[in-house]
């Protein structure tokens, strides 16, 4: 199979999956027992108002026509309007999505820089103290309830030590005296670009706890996957050959062996990236982080269905995209993938 043919197949599959996802989300939105039209009007609606809202929202038309409109709007990048605030959802997302992405990306960086080295060293010192230690961390990390860990960290680092803030993206002082100019929506990036050092430091201290909480699960998975694939790779003949060529152990572990072990590890990282996008819902609630999670939880309380569906759809599209990117990265990392 040619490389482009492989890529084309993956692309087609991705399009198919996104289409299926839109059908499923639409269907979920329509089995809601509560009446969207009634919610749209607000408290104590009159029957006339509800009927008018029903026509306005297109709820009087047959289901497949409704889906057709829904799909048409989606293709034009219109995710609908919040029933509660009557705001276009896309506008809300523009404010919330960067906050969540920043949190998730910092968390993923932690997973990469903690998980992969621990996994590699664990495999290299198999059945020694470090190995037992990191395996214990790995299994604890995937078993611990995220929301509970967040609370514990707050109790220790805010309640007891007073080292780190309890929540939010920046402190009130920063918003008042060192306001952040929004460029990308990523505070760490924005403050760097505008050389707003106090605000950068403030944003950094705010992101550490929630990002770490979020990253725990990914760290656990990464340690596990890196360790098990590295154990296999280290038994390969080319590792003995590399030693026979006099290459230093560091090069062998972190360069020659790791690249062979990277494909499964990346798969796990990509999975945890998306898991983190949803895990962020819990973390954001605990750390009052103004992102998608806070957005969607308030939507749940208000039964604001277009919002819930839009967030589900957006995150899922991310998921599909990441998987697509992963497929392409695999081809780049291991030249034999296409042949399989």
């Amino acid at each position: 199979m040619k490389v482009w043919e492989y890529i084309l197949r993956r692309l087609l599959l991705a399009v198919l999956v996104v289409f299926g996802v839109s059908v499923v989300t639409f269907f979920i939105a329509r089995v809601v027992p509560s009446d969207p039209a009634a919610l749209w009007v607000g408290p104590r609606p009159s029957p006339d108002q509800i009927a008018a809202a029903r026509v306005k929202l297109g709820l009087d038309r047959p289901l497949y026509i409704q889906y057709f409109y829904y799909l048409g709007n989606l293709l034009r990048g219109d995710l609908g309007v919040s029933i509660k605030t009557h705001q276009p959802i896309v506008q809300d997302l523009r404010a919330y999505l960067p906050a969540t992405l920043e949190l998730v990306l910092v968390g993923m960086a932690m997973a990469v820089f903690i998980g992969i080295p621990l996994g590699v060293l664990s495999a290299a010192r198999r059945n020694r103290l470090l190995d037992h230690f990191s395996r214990l961390i790995a299994v604890a990390a995937v078993s611990i309830p995220t929301f509970w860990l967040g609370l514990l960290l707050q109790l220790i680092f805010f309640g007891q030590l007073r080292w780190l803030p309890i929540g939010g993206r920046v402190s009130i002082e920063t918003t008042l005296y060192q306001p952040i100019q929004t460029v990308t929506g990523f505070y760490l990036v924005d403050t760097l670009i505008t050389r707003n050092w106090p605000a950068f430091w403030d944003a950094l201290t705010h992101i550490i706890l929630p990002a770490f909480t979020l990253a725990t699960y990914a760290i656990g998975l990464t340690i596990r996957m890196t360790r098990s694939t590295m154990v296999e790779v280290l038994q390969e003949k080319y590792i003995v050959a590399a030693r026979a060529a006099g290459l230093p152990e560091r090069t062998i572990l972190f360069r020659l062996a790791l690249k062979n072990a990277l494909v499964p590890t990346l798969t796990v990282l990509a999975l945890s990236f998306v898991y983190s996008l949803t895990g962020a819902i819990l973390v954001e609630v605990i750390f009052s982080w103004p992102g998608l999670g806070s957005y969607v939880t308030s939507a749940i309380i208000n039964v604001d269905f277009p919002v819930i569906i839009a967030v589900t759809l957006i995150v899922t599209v991310f998921y599909v995209l990441i998987n697509l990117v992963l497929d392409l990265v695999q081809v780049a990392l291991d030249p034999r993938v296409v042949l399989k």
Partner: peptide, 15 residues
């Protein structure tokens, strides 16, 4: 293709 927790949240919210 759905992140499972999110899909579960959406379904539970709907039900």
């Amino acid at each position: 293709a759905f992140p499972s927790l999110l899909l579960a949240i959406a379904i539970a919210a709907a039900l």
